[in-house]
Design a protein around this nucleic acid. Structure first.
Lengths: 117, 117
DNA sequence: ATCGCCAATCGTCGATTGACGATAGCTCGG
DNA sequence: CCGAGCTATCGTCAATCGACGATTGGCGAT
């Protein structure tokens, strides 16, 4: 087995305490843009899979994700960039190993916006 | 006021009685594809807005939708085609006036898939 | 039968996306 | 301080998307 990162020191933010459970308006031009933007981030099977992996607290590092997908490292990095740009994923940069994890608030916001449909 | 369609004879299917509330698996490669596909349909603000309009049981005809959007008729038609291809919208063709409406089952499926994240 | 409205389709254009390899930059460990 | 591992970025290429105008086809009403 190849020498890998410890997987230990990488961590997610300690659970969003701000209870933002759909308090923002969910029916407005801005909400349309917001929902479309979040939906666009999930509009690719690979990104859905990555989100699932991260939600399970699996495969935190980019290289871990690369290992599980039949894609080049640069491609995975690009998908992660899209997810991060949409706010669905946040990074915890700690040296050369970057921890990727779900942004629970964004995911909740997405669910909230969708439920409002 | 311009002479318009009656808005009366256009109708939606009489409420899906089949209680398909997330019974299909929501975590599999197929589910990834399905969620990505549905998300892609919502990955544009105009389509989100159209879905909202239809969910409110407003603006059933294509021309009604065109009236409320700063877009050409062909563009709106294309967005409707995308929504229909994704299964989020169904048509009730009755002569030259075509009734567009939400497919409640598809919307529920989308919410279900998303909640599983 | 013809006219008028409604909607789908076609063809085009520029912009964006998704994929890849190659390269560069970063930190930690030796 | 030098190498090794990890990731971001660049450049490229094909494919897809979004928007439009113009055209076509269809039904109902006049």
């Amino acid at each position: 087995m190849p020498r890998r990162a410890p997987t230990d020191t990488l961590c997610c933010p300690p659970a969003t305490t701000t209870a933002d459970t759909g308090l923002a308006p969910a029916d407005s031009p801005e909400a349309d843009e917001e929902l479309a933007s979040l939906a666009k981030a999930l509009a690719h099977p690979v990104r859905v899979r990555i989100v699932r992996m991260l939600a399970r607290k699996d495969a935190r590092m980019c290289s871990h994700i690369v290992d599980e997908l039949p894609l080049a490292q640069s491609t995975v990095s690009e998908h992660l960039r899209v997810l991060k740009a949409a706010g669905l994923v946040v990074t915890n940069e700690r040296g050369p190993r970057i921890g990727y994890c779900i942004a629970p608030a964004a995911l909740r916001r997405l669910k909230s916006l969708l439920q409002a449909l």
